[in-house]
Computed example of a mutant assay.
Amino acid sequence: MEKKKVALFLPSLVGGGAERVMLSLASEFAEQEHHVDLVLAKASGEYMDQVPANIHIVDLDTSRVLYSLFPLIRYLKENRPQSVLSALDHTNIIAICAVTIANVNVRTIVSIHNNLTHLSKVKKKRFVTQWIPSLMKWSYKRADKVVAVSQGVAEDAMQRLELPEEKVQVIYNPVVDERLIEKAAEPIDHPWFADGEPPVLLAVGRLTPEKDFPNLLRAFAKLRKTRPARLIILGEGEKRAEMEKLIIELGISQDVQLPGFVNNPYAYMKNARLFVLSSLSEGLPTVLIEALACGTEVVSTDCPSGPREILQGGRYGSLVRIEDSEALFQAMKERLDMPDNGTNSESYEPFWKTNVSRQYLDIL
């Protein structure tokens, strides 16, 4: 295979799903001996210490992605990568603008990780939604390819951004590899996972409105009235204070923990009795796939887009309506009442990193 010079462009390496996907792709590309530049608007974030030594970090050192436009143009002119892959809406726009202004021969791939229609409803009060869609319509048509992380995301993007079908390609996220399996097997030093303790339910994600963790907390409060159980939510974000207040109001402080970001969530997943996704909107929820790969049974909201595709319409886990704490409670209770049969390896087969990285390299 011809060795390529590939640039992956991101705002930073904060602990989000898209950032983890891009770092995973960068690692796979570098392992196949391609030259990989990880270009960051700001070289910061929880994943910085996870960047392999064979990946070159380019720090544009800007306080906002918007300000990275001209530094990115300079990078493109001086380094001439063969292709650029970006993720996240505003970052994609800047990447395409930079390639256009730099006037260099660079193949540009942008990736969409969320259902744009439903995400805009969640973020409807934010000023950014007033101008981002128009810029996305203009810029995405100038990309060589638009990657959608699920079929639902692809269909939504084609309709919302008026993209031709041949411009869009569905490539699932690169989630599963031997390293994940190995890390899941590592011991976990947490008293709640000791033998004889009540079952632990786990959720993982940034504490943001679209994850709808308050709905999960209400459902767990209902569950806690019927049986001993505990809930751990891993992640950090703007809704922490609001969630902590709700936990107190619901009277479940003794049975809920919010440890923040952890370096190895897979050990938590493997030891949890049940993994729960409560989101209002997703693209292709990586954590749901990771939980399946760790052998943990799952309950998920049937939000757009991704969970229904991942769980094959309910074949590999329970699907419930969004914003329905009663339905979520019932699904969790039913799963806990059933024997723990683990998960089927077929459920995460489409998400092996080597297969996914090959698809990306084909279009890069």
Rank of each mutant, 00 (worst) to 15 (best):
L180D: 07
L180W: 03
A184F: 06
E186C: 12
D189C: 09
H190A: 08
P191V: 08
P191N: 09
W192A: 09
F193C: 07
F193K: 09
A194Q: 15
D195V: 14
G196E: 06
E197V: 07
P198H: 02
P198E: 00
P198R: 00
P198S: 00
L201A: 06
R206Y: 05
T208I: 13
K211S: 04
D212K: 10
P214M: 07
P214A: 11
A219F: 04
F220C: 10
A221I: 02
R224P: 01
T226N: 14
P228G: 07
P228N: 05
P228L: 00
R230W: 04
L231V: 11
L231E: 06
I233W: 09
I233M: 05
L234F: 03
G235H: 07
R240M: 06
R240P: 13
A241Y: 01
E242K: 15
E242Y: 04
E244Y: 01
E244V: 00
E244Q: 13
K245Q: 15
I247L: 08
E249G: 07
I252K: 05
D255M: 11
V256T: 12
L258F: 04
V262E: 09
P265E: 01
Y266G: 02
Y268L: 11
Y268A: 07
M269E: 12
M269G: 10
K270I: 05
N271A: 12
L274K: 05
L274G: 10
L274A: 08
V276I: 12
L277K: 05
S279D: 04
S279L: 02
S279Y: 00
S279C: 07
E282H: 03
L284P: 09
T286I: 13
I289W: 03
A291R: 03
A293L: 02
T296L: 06
E297M: 12
E297C: 14
V298L: 14
V299A: 10
S300G: 05
T301L: 03
C303V: 03
G306Q: 11
P307R: 11
R308A: 13
E309Q: 03
I310R: 11
I310M: 11
L311S: 05
Q312D: 15
Q312S: 14
G314C: 09
S318P: 06
L319F: 04
V320Q: 10
R321E: 15
I322N: 01
I322F: 01
